[in-house]
Design a protein around this nucleic acid. Structure first.
Lengths: 204, 204
DNA sequence: CCACCAAGTAATCATGCGTTGACATGGTCC
DNA sequence: GGACCATGTCAACGCATGATTACTTGGTGG
């Protein structure tokens, strides 16, 4: 069923009374479950089992399932670019996009963080978080596009966001081929054409 | 909570012993719930209530929740173009895409059918269904693109599929603005640029 | 009119899951 | 060494939900 371990944890020696390590283990397991299974199909019992930790500790450290979800969300790496080194021109943007979109396996847990945002908990607060995260992404894209003067520049930037979401979903959740198997190099050309076509300044 | 009626049904006069009408009412209600809430958050009791029908009838007509989901899926209109009139050139494709992507409200139930495909039941059979539906969409796009001779034509077509998925998700599930509020006219220009940029034949 | 069967109803079962509180344990500081 | 608190354990509760069963209703054909 869905109770197979997913993180490869729990084999560690007995983590003895280390609150921080326990928290981390729970977060790691939770991220894996939430991104792969979604909120509803993730059970606290499975998360606890993955982390090799007692179920009740989830309540202790995160209060509730919602709390765990939000904490896991907060501990998730950002979508594009590391802090402060966001691409500054269209070519670099296309490259960064292709790299990230192609990285079907995120460094820490084999899934794309965007997915976790989509596997929502039904909580409006989380929905707002997600909206903000994607809006922020859109803003960065807009900036990288050279803040095109087109009246619909914002819309165009968000279309690129939508593309990112779609590619992440199709690659990780749907497994559509050949997209799911494409390497960064495969994606670079097509993505460049999209970015170029979408963000080029209006002829005017 | 999530038990508010969503279809506006149930106010009809007492549907008296009409198996067909009962089935239809259930399908309609199920589609609405499944697309808006996803598989897990959709409860059979709510579906039955929306349809104004007894809970046990779901078992009678569809066997199980899975059965209902698959039936609802099968009763869902296709994504792009009506039977046989799929766009045949890039311009028409861009237009059809924009129309469909912009139609946040699908004719029959206020949601996009792609979403239902994404709100999976965890069932592998459904996942396969979804993959096939999207692959078919990709094939149609490929064809409409003039079957570009580029070696990565297939990949490019699937990127357009991913865009469709992403836009549907962002519009309906995320509510990112201004994308979520964009009208077909708003989307036409940008989408045209994307389609043009992505599907134009290679310079060779 | 009666028998029969599809259509519909009501009540209940079984189970998984989030949550909770009472208890055990070990390390640390006086 | 003993008190004390953070850490971790155990067992259970309550609830929502999918499934199921026994029963009722009504219309239709003979």
């Amino acid at each position: 069923m869905s109770s197979d371990d997913v993180t490869g944890q729990a084999a560690d020696g007995p983590r003895r009374r280390d609150a921080t390590a326990t928290r981390q283990a729970l977060l790691l397991a939770a991220r894996a479950r939430f991104t792969q299974l979604g909120y509803d199909r993730t059970t606290l019992r499975d998360v606890a089992a993955d982390a090799g930790v007692n179920l009740a500790l989830i309540k202790r450290y995160f209060g509730s399932k919602e709390g765990l979800f939000k904490a896991a969300l907060a501990s998730t790496p950002r979508f594009l670019g590391r802090e402060g080194e966001f691409p500054r021109d269209r070519a670099a943007l296309a490259e960064a996009l292709s790299r990230q979109l192609a990285a079907g396996a995120w460094a820490e847990f084999g899934e794309h963080p965007v997915l976790m945002l989509l596997r929502d908990s039904g909580d409006e607060q989380v929905a707002e978080l997600r909206r903000q995260a994607l809006a922020e992404f859109g803003r960065q894209v807009l900036e990288a596009s050279g803040a095109s003067s087109a009246p619909d520049a914002e819309l165009r930037a968000e279309l690129l966001v939508a593309l990112g979401v779609g590619v992440a979903v199709v690659r990780s959740a749907v497994g559509l081929r050949p997209l799911a198997d494409a390497t960064p190099e495969d994606l670079l050309g097509p993505l460049h054409d999209i970015v170029e076509g979408l963000l080029k300044p209006p002829p005017d």
